[in-house]
Design a protein around this nucleic acid. Structure first.
Lengths: 226, 226
DNA sequence: CGCCCAGTTGAGGACACTCAATAGCGGTGG
DNA sequence: CCACCGCTATTGAGTGTCCTCAACTGGGCG
């Protein structure tokens, strides 16, 4: 059961273990489990100590952090074959609440498996480092794009990046609350801003699904050209 | 010459190669060079392709990113034995402008050295992963602490974290412009905010050096309790 | 049908930004 | 030694944006 899944990952060249041969995999997929999460479920909580990391097979998850005053911030989104909980690899407790934004399928990978395989397959480390770098780049982008400029600019950038990106792979428009937590605005401001974009015909959506969006115009707004 | 430096790093258990034995080190320190940077110098620029990563021996550096509209944001600070330019390890161009905030001494480590050593010393990868995780945690902290709340809160948090942290290791108060780029405020607002903290006696400084600061009060402000 | 929750819209005010003038500090040259 | 310059920090006045609080709408579901 686990086997087909891991091989699937391998062929798609997406997941952590891409590039390992059959022998390596055989030793691996025994302990690898799979977990299904419903929307709103938590995969782990901040400061928990875990002994596994995770790969997202399908769905979208959010990583959240909190401040003493109760305000919360979405620090990153994960999808496709992104990795979560890498911090366990270096002995740290989880740094966020990991919560499912949609239903999710997740591979659970015990730390020992990585330690074991890594000893003979340094390639695995390269793969891991790539994941880490991805996360870091993403964090930096959020810092520069979603915390600067007017509400209009931030929302436009978020739409361009998540809801109607260049190469397909659209995400649904999540709740206003979540959007607010991503770009550092209140739900009301987000609502107003999106409503205005609609009125100007830059955006056409029904419910959570976006049907059409004027990427050029949004880009100009995002870049502060109007 | 390089030798004593690397050994120094080892004993202090700080730098990348801590934990490697003498034999390993001997193979390493030949190609490792050292570079001195004056304040304001750039170590590398965004989108450059490099073939080295770096370790900060002394001084403070900032990592910057820019937006199309010209606004800039400081994405992270580095000091002590922090690592820079890890992205070269996974074949990516540098993701930031790396600029010296003070005079700096820096070790330049060719990527090949890491690839080479890593093959026989998986422990090195663990060290690298730790660095990556440090950077990521730092990025997340900035996202939650320096982009939420009022100007007063943000500046208070910045002071607590950089200028007068718990265990010594104070940083100087950098220029208002830089502070603004860290917390997402204009130089004027930063100036006003700091001035007011001074007036309230929570802060005593001369020039860039802080002499005294009321950590308890600052914490209360940071947490939005007043 | 009515409840509940999410989104929308409105009015008012607070906070930070903009533009502009002033003050302080260090360095340079007369 | 002092005068002057340039740069950074500070302060002020006015404005705009976003937040707060609150009412209203609409869809989903018991």
């Amino acid at each position: 059961m686990g086997e087909t899944k891991c091989r699937y990952c391998t062929t798609r060249n997406l997941a952590l273990f891409a590039g390992l041969d059959e022998g390596d995999l055989r030793r691996v997929h025994q302990p690898i489990k799979e977990v299904a999460l419903a929307q709103q479920d938590a995969l782990y909580r901040m400061n928990e100590r875990g002994s596994a990391l995770f790969t997202l097979r399908s769905g979208v998850m959010k990583l959240m952090q909190y401040l003493p005053d109760g305000s919360q911030r979405i620090v990153r989104l994960l999808r496709d074959s992104d990795a979560l909980g890498l911090e366990t690899l270096v002995g740290q407790p989880y740094q966020h609440d990991a919560i499912a934004l949609t239903d999710c399928m997740i591979c659970v990978i015990p730390v020992e498996v990585v330690d074991l395989l890594g000893r003979e397959q340094p390639r695995l480390y390269r793969e891991l480092m790539t994941r880490w770098q991805q996360a870091l780049s993403e964090a930096d982008v959020w810092l520069t794009e979603f915390t600067t400029g007017t509400a209009r600019q931030r929302v436009a950038r978020l739409l361009l990046r998540l809801a109607c990106p260049e190469g397909g792979n659209h995400l649904p428009l999540f709740g206003r609350e979540d959007i607010g937590a991503m770009v550092g605005l209140t739900t009301e401001t987000v609502s107003r801003t999106i409503a205005e974009l609609r009125r100007q015909g830059l955006l056409r959506d029904r419910g959570a699904n976006i049907h059409e969006c004027n990427r050029e115009m949004l880009r100009r707004i995002a870049d502060g050209e109007e």
